[in-house]
């Protein structure tokens, strides 16, 4: 049982780290906007490079069709 003498403070320290991390995150503005990130999640091809290559592909496709 005496292990609890170490485990409880250890658990509380972990909780304390969590709280500190949360406070820092909130202060840096992580939670200012809770709506837009939900929308960002639906953008699957994020980088423009990728979009451009996809574009070229479709152009090639259409030229080969012609």
């Amino acid at each position: 049982m005496s292990v609890l003498f170490i485990m409880i403070p250890a658990a509380l320290i972990l909780a304390g780290i969590g709280i500190v991390a949360f406070v820092l995150a909130a202060k840096s503005g992580q939670f200012d906007d809770l709506d837009t990130p939900a929308f960002r999640a639906v953008f699957d091809d994020d980088d423009t490079m990728h979009t451009q290559t996809k574009n070229e592909n479709t152009e090639q496709d259409s030229s080969s069709d012609a």
């Binding site: 969590g18 406070v23 202060k27």
Partner: peptide, 14 residues
Amino acid sequence: EDRKFLIRVGVAGA
């Protein structure tokens, strides 16, 4: 002010 509010809620919850 909003951030302070949120911090209070989070800390109180923890």
